[in-house]
Nucleic acid binder design. Sequence first.
DNA 1: AGCCATGCACCG
DNA 2: CGGTGCATGGCT
Length: 147
Amino acid sequence: MTDQGAKNFVRKTLSANDLGRTGGHQAGIAIPKSGHILSFFPRLSPEEYNPDCIINCFIPELEMYINLRYVYYNNKLHTQGTRNEYRITGTTRLLRQLNAQVQDEIEFTKDKFGEMSINIIRWAADRKAENTQIKLSNGWSFSVEGD
DNA sequence: AGCCATGCACCG
DNA sequence: CGGTGCATGGCT
């Protein structure tokens, strides 16, 4: 059961680590297991070990497509590891090109065809739409429009 | 649960 | 060799 037919999006306030500004070089964006956020992205089976998939995204601001990797690090479920979290990687170069800053929001939009696109919502701008979104306590928010 | 960090591999 | 990504552990 997916959410085909709806145009919706999820957003995440970018952390320093998300932007690769902390000296780290993983910089994968963690996806919370909150239902609405998780179901927005393709399903990755817990039955598999570290399942992943490629998400092709359109970047309107750059007028180009890029491939992101959506991965479920779940070695806790299969080995003696400690990981049990979803991430999106491959964003470092993109976010730099977009000149995204900490506190900016990355917005994943999925249209009715399932096409994903990414926009950066600059901090201080577009504060008015806030009351139409549902904010979670972990920096993510979402909105669903019935179309 | 989410963000920060890191040893190694790969690629320019 | 520097930057980025993979897979993992650490810290709060």
